[in-house]
Every structure is written in C-alpha cells, then in structure tokens.
C-alpha cells in the first residue's frame, strides 16, 4: 500500500516521530490546524499506550479515499499483553495509569471512526479515522 507509512514505537522519542508523520500527512491532505492538533493528539495517545503498556509496536498512517472524501487513518498495533476488558477501558474516567491522559475514549472522540480489537496475550489493534470535511 503506497499510501501507508509506519513508525516503530520502541522508546518515548518514537512518539514524537509518529506525531510528526501524522502531522505531515494531515497537512498534505489539507486538514486545518485544529484537526491537525486533534489527529496528532490521538496519535500521541495511541503511541504512548504502546510505549507504556506493550513495550513495542507500531503506528501506521494511511491516506484513504472513499467516494469523493479523503481521510486519514491511524493504525496502532502491538503484540503486548492485550486488554482484558475492552468495555472498561472504553469507559470515561477509567485509566489504569490514573493519569489525566485522553485515554481511549478521548481518542475516539478526537477522531470520526474508532475500532479496537484486543484479547489477552495476543496484543491490541486500534484503527481510528478522521475524514476531511
């Protein structure tokens, strides 16, 4: 897929690289500054989750087109411990780190579409999309 570029998340600095990649693609697609900031915040959050809970994984950014619409898709994948109770992590106010991060519900609200697949022992895949309005 020529439209996809990926960043491996191995340490905290890779989060910055993933943000940069996301911002560049968002700019190319013509997203405004507020949406660029939303997309990079979502990427940050997903990359941070990989770094903190899975140890390593990758973030891929893809330009997508559907009918006349263009959009940006974030694919976050890791082979970490996975999530035991997805409903719980998708609940507002729940965060295992206790921090004030956006958490997955925050990511979902920053983007237009959100999908998560995870089970204990087999890692986590998250796909989030934002469409250009």
């Amino acid at each position: 897929m020529g439209n996809q570029s990926c960043v491996k998340i191995l340490n905290e600095w890779d989060i910055v690289a993933a943000r940069q990649l996301g911002r560049n693609v968002a700019k190319e697609l013509g997203f405004g500054t507020v949406d660029q900031a939303r997309i990079t915040t979502a990427i940050s959050e997903l990359a941070r989750n990989i770094y903190l809970y899975a140890g390593q994984g990758q973030i891929c950014i893809e330009k997508i087109y559907d009918g006349g619409k263009a959009g940006l898709k974030i694919i976050a994948a890791d082979n970490g411990p996975g999530i035991n109770d997805i409903r719980q992590v998708m609940e507002d106010g729940f965060s295992t780190s206790g921090g004030l991060g956006a958490g997955l519900p925050g990511v979902k609200r920053l983007m237009d579409e959100f999908d998560i697949d995870s089970s204990p022992g087999s890692g986590t895949d998250i796909i989030a999309t934002k469409w250009l309005r």
């Binding site: 900031a37 915040t41 507002d92 609200r109």
Partner: peptide, 18 residues
C-alpha cells in the same frame, strides 16, 4: 497554546459525556 489547550479540550469533551 493550541497544543496545550488540546488536553483541556479532551477533558472538556469527557466532562460533557460524563
């Protein structure tokens, strides 16, 4: 400033939803 406010924006949306 925008980047900093982003965090507040996320918290604001969470507040709305709660």
């Amino acid at each position: 400033l925008l980047e900093v406010m982003m965090g507040y924006g996320v918290a604001y949306r969470e507040h709305q939803s709660l």
